[in-house]
Design a protein around this nucleic acid. Sequence first.
DNA 1: CAAACGATTTTCT
DNA 2: GAAAATCGTTTGG
Length: 191
Amino acid sequence: MKLPPSYYRQTDVVALAEDLLGKFLVTNINGTRTSGIITETEAYAGVNDRASHAYGNRRTARTETMYQNGGLAYVYLCYGLHHLFNVVTNVKDVPHAILVRAVQPSEGIDLMLERRKLTTEGPRLSGGPATLSQALGITVKHNKTSLNGHVIWLEDRGIRPSKDQITVGPRVGVDYAGEDAKLPYRFRLSL
DNA sequence: CAAACGATTTTCT
DNA sequence: GAAAATCGTTTGG
């Protein structure tokens, strides 16, 4: 069920981003499990991708996480207040990552509502890259956390999306990336 | 050491 | 639809 370490070392980050649709993202932060079905992802394809933090083989304290062997969480602060969760893929020194942009709540919805300070379910619970992190309790403290451990991990529970459930399009919020902003690296799943 | 800048969300008009 | 909120990372002097 839990995705094995070998899964994350696959080399085609775009194909992997699409494959993550329908997988479960699970956290167990303070002894309580919360999870959701991944419904939106974006691929960030390393040194040749102007939209990636690692474009041009840039190695800094922050991007170092992406250069690690696949199977880690890359969590960073965006706009000073949002924690964005990524899955690091490929092998060591190849800085590929997949941004998880949305999940459909599954387990622990009460706790997710509490973390988000909401009272009812809806798109605002975990329908964006920053809101899903907050709902699942993921923060920058979980940067470099192994996805093979017991805090954050991914599971395959047998959901096999059909092609007509998947929408492909350009990535969001990366206008600064020039031509690369138009690449079809965003994947959405309608259940 | 100073300054600009976001892989966004929420609120207000 | 526009604008604020808000700060670590990165870059330039």
